[in-house]
Design a binder for these strands. Structure first.
Lengths: 234, 234
DNA sequence: GTCTATAGTGAGATAGAC
DNA sequence: GTCTATCTCACTATAGAC
């Protein structure tokens, strides 16, 4: 089933997911690894690390279980690879926080981006949430290394805005904790949100409304006003 | 080890955890069940439902594994019992939201209460979070039943405040989503918070500072001011 | 009521044919 | 590179002695 679709030569049509170092392996290897990672994201999100079985991931990917071990060695290595991809996406939204930008626009763009991520990649968000809740053993170094550093940089930007009197005095680090929690809850706790809203599923307009409410609440909380040009995020 | 401490007669010294119907069983039964539930909370929080083993819970409770099955039947029933206790605590904080109260004081009391809960019962919060993230199969009825109803009631209270012009116009349901996420993240994502703050553990003063920041941000976001008498929550 | 010993199941991982 | 068949082990649950 689906062996070689578009086997045209030349560089890969799109790098889809940026691989650690160079995109090792041939075309079929890359395609299979991508399929396995996509299936793994769904199964790990649904069941957690221990609850997920290699059998379930293999079935979802449409491959025999042994192939997963051939490509990724162990369940833990597959999981770690998946986490790495997710973490890369996680920090991208920080790019919006730059000193030259208008505070309201920058923070609005950050919120909008994180909300879009919750809508389009809820499974990735759940895998990350599950990992952190259960101790973050696989990504401890990342959290206290790269993440801490980038938060420090971006907190300095916000401190600058506060010092210039361009927004209300807030502790930027706790502001980030609040923004992460508020936006990710629409992915991680989606079931609860749906239950309370009495929805079968969350539509795009549900997300637009939620984003609008969060923007108002958070920007007003920062002593800012919602910018007319709600930035597009990316 | 520790067989009968305080076996004085009369009614139970304190009902500790309110049981479903009547506190069925004798003193030792109640004591053992409480020990098992406490151990289960810790193990389920650390490892999730599938990752937790009855062996690990038994060891933590200092009892043989077979006793857990004697008291609770199956792993799933033990888990469901634990979830029931946690849900009861979860809705208690809503008691602060009443029409007669000052909006700023009521919301401040709600936030303060939820933050105290994150500090004192982080394990319970994690068990709940894990359950919701992975589909809330065990508590679906509760979420779309009792929880939805109580949220509707309390949302009406906030709508009333808004209609009276006592606070900024907000969608109360999404406000609750934000308050839940913001306060519970200090329990569920504690590892991440500690990593970013470079703390070995979160102290009481860390929580006081976080609570203060959340109060400022959220109340200002609702067009309110932090009340002078920061309510004690309970 | 309590606990030891064990049955039965399903998991991760791999050998070895293709 | 791919996949079937299988090894080994940990887990839930229970039978049955005390």
């Amino acid at each position: 089933m689906m062996k070689f679709s578009a086997r045209s030569a030349g560089p890969a049509l799109k790098p889809s997911l940026d691989t650690p170092a160079r995109p090792a392996g041939g075309r079929t290897r890359q395609a299979n690894e991508a399929r396995i990672l996509e299936a793994a994201e769904a199964v790990f999100a649904e069941a957690g690390f221990t609850g997920a079985s290699m059998q379930a991931i293999a079935e979802r990917a449409g491959l025999p279980k042994a192939n997963l071990h051939y490509y990724f060695g162990t369940k833990e290595l597959l999981y770690r690879t998946l986490l790495g991809r997710i973490l890369d996406m996680w920090v991208d939204a920080f790019d919006h926080i730059t000193p030259d930008r208008d505070p309201a626009e920058a923070i609005a763009a950050y919120i909008t981006d994180k909300m879009r991520w919750s809508r389009t990649r809820p499974l990735a968000s759940k895998v990350f949430a599950n990992e952190v809740i259960h101790g973050a053993q696989q990504i401890e170094g990342y959290l206290s290394g790269k993440l801490r550093q980038i938060v420090a940089e971006k907190a300095a930007v916000i401190d600058g805005w506060v010092a210039e009197g361009r927004m209300a005095p807030v502790d930027p680090v706790h502001l980030f904790f609040t923004l992460w929690a508020t936006t990710q809850t629409y992915a991680d706790f989606e079931v609860q949100v749906r239950a309370v809203l009495a929805r079968d599923r969350l539509t795009e307009s549900d997300f637009d409304h939620a984003t609008d409410q969060i923007l108002r609440l958070m920007l007003r909380g920062c002593g800012l006003e919602v910018p007319h040009t709600v930035p597009d995020g990316r």
